[in-house]
Simulated scan of single mutants.
Amino acid sequence: MLQKQTNHSLGIKKLRNDDYEVEIVGNFLLIHSVPYLNANRELVYGTLVSSVSTPIPDTHVVYFIGEIPCGIDGKPMNQLINSSHRHDLGNGIIIDHIFSHKPNPMYPTYYEKMVTYVKILCGQAQHYFPDATAKTGRVIETKQEDSVLHYSNTNSSRAEIDVVNEKLSGIRIGIVGLGGTGSFILDKVAKTLVGEIHLFDGDRFKQHNAFRAPGATTKERIDLNDFKVDYFTEVYSQIHRKIIPHSVYINETNLGLLNKLDFVFIAIDIGEIKKMVFKKLEDLNIPFIDCGLGIEREGNELMGIVRTTLSTPEERGHVYNGLVSFSNGEDDDYKTNIQIGDLNNLNAIFAVIKWKKYYGFYNDQRLEYNSNYSVNVNTIFNNEV
């Protein structure tokens, strides 16, 4: 979150000016050292937490880190507590309770929202401890953003899935081939917390590429005749800080570029190169996904199969059992009919979903290592090892 937004548009600067112990972590606002009573009517301190993913509060709910807060009678404040269970919000924030105090109208700023909850808790504590206060005056410096993304994914914070997103954090990704499928893979991976994205392609970005790539570009931009990797790096560096272009075709002389990667997407159709890359990644114990797209003409219509094949250090042999074609595709109608960006996108979507399943982002109950989607019958066929 930008510091300017944090200080001015959210009412957080006022919280600091009033000596509350404020900390910003990702898209969450924390107020530490909030006094309250526990079941023994002892003075203890906890932390209030609120998502600040919108300019003004869009929910009255806050989270709390600490014991069950109690009233002056030592009984739980059930009128405040919505539920009690430990829950990981991501960013190292693990909360114990959810509070609900709904005003009418909604809190106009985060200042009013947080102060309301502080007063509810602190008011009970002050019955026995008149000097109890959350205004400690302690300043917690907001850490400089070290995220690979230029701006935060506020949808994830609002949906409370930051902890799920963190499963992809730091992974070094390679994408071999920046044609239709590879460019769509980049479009999706660039919006995650992966540590680095290495792009490999020695081709130039030309007019036909524009029709099977994400988004749109101008004819003038195409006329610059840049390498594909440089063009896509320019586009996606607007959201992700760590995109590294390699304007080369992978071959036996530069396979070492793959050495330090954690996962690789392969989106090329040259069989001998594909087999060479497979062998290199297997020797390095690097998991990978190979993407396949086959198009045939049936009269004046097209029939297609979209293939997704996962290879892991635990399961390798299936890629050589006829699931993956190592031909160069010279007779494939795909070579001449390239206006099928939708299937490229679908190929990328299947690949990215399987990749996310591999890292536990999505639940995976089938554990298939190969799947084929047939366009004309609208059916997915899974192959399990």
Rank of each mutant, 00 (worst) to 15 (best):
I305P: 00
F288Q: 05
T308Q: 08
R241N: 12
L224K: 13
V306Y: 03
N285F: 11
V235H: 02
N254G: 08
K219L: 14
A216H: 11
D262G: 11
F263D: 04
L302Q: 03
K280H: 13
V277Q: 02
T309G: 01
V229D: 03
H246Y: 14
D269N: 10
V306W: 01
G271W: 01
K274P: 00
L255C: 09
Y231N: 00
G271K: 02
L258F: 04
I289S: 07
T218Q: 08
E282N: 04
V235T: 10
S247F: 11
P214S: 11
G292W: 02
I222E: 09
K275L: 14
K280I: 02
R307T: 12
L258K: 02
I222Q: 08
I295S: 02
N225K: 07
Q238K: 14
P287W: 08
K280L: 02
P287I: 07
V248I: 14
K274T: 09
N254T: 07
D262Y: 04
D283C: 12
H246M: 05
I250G: 04
K275C: 00
K260M: 02
L224P: 00
T308M: 08
S247D: 08
I286M: 09
I286W: 04
K228T: 09
G299K: 08
V306N: 08
D262A: 03
I239L: 12
T217F: 11
I286N: 05
E298T: 12
D283M: 14
